[in-house]
């Protein structure tokens, strides 16, 4: 085999999420903000043990699980009943990059 794998799906998802987060950081009212906020809230709930890993939504599975794996400590500091603080988005953007 000349190449092991042409497309690494997770890299690709990461690339698209980078786009979305860059957009949110630049324009605070990005049309994707709702989608991303839902994913962050879901990750917060799982990180704090108020939601089960098994219940993670498949539509945003990569983002939620990436946050859980690499951002868990920070997630536990966030409050799922309040808006996501603005500084969180650049932090996640750096993480994805």
């Amino acid at each position: 085999m000349y190449l092991a794998q042409v497309i690494k799906n997770d890299d690709v998802k990461s690339d698209f999420y980078i786009n979305i987060f860059e957009d949110i950081v630049k324009n605070h009212d990005s049309s994707f903000k709702v989608l991303v906020d839902d994913a962050i809230l879901e990750a917060i709930n799982v990180a704090k043990g108020t939601a089960d890993i098994y219940s993670i939504n498949n539509n945003r599975y990569f983002l939620v699980t990436t946050l859980l794996e690499r951002f868990k400590f920070r997630l536990t500091e966030l409050n799922s009943s309040q808006n996501i603080p603005d500084e969180v988005y650049p932090e996640i953007l750096n993480l994805l990059k």
Partner: peptide
């Protein structure tokens, strides 16, 4: 693969998504 079933089990057991 579509529903991330085994991957969720991995995440639960080892706290990793890959």
């Amino acid at each position: 693969n579509q529903l991330n079933i085994s991957k969720k089990m991995l995440l639960k057991k080892y706290s990793i998504n890959q």
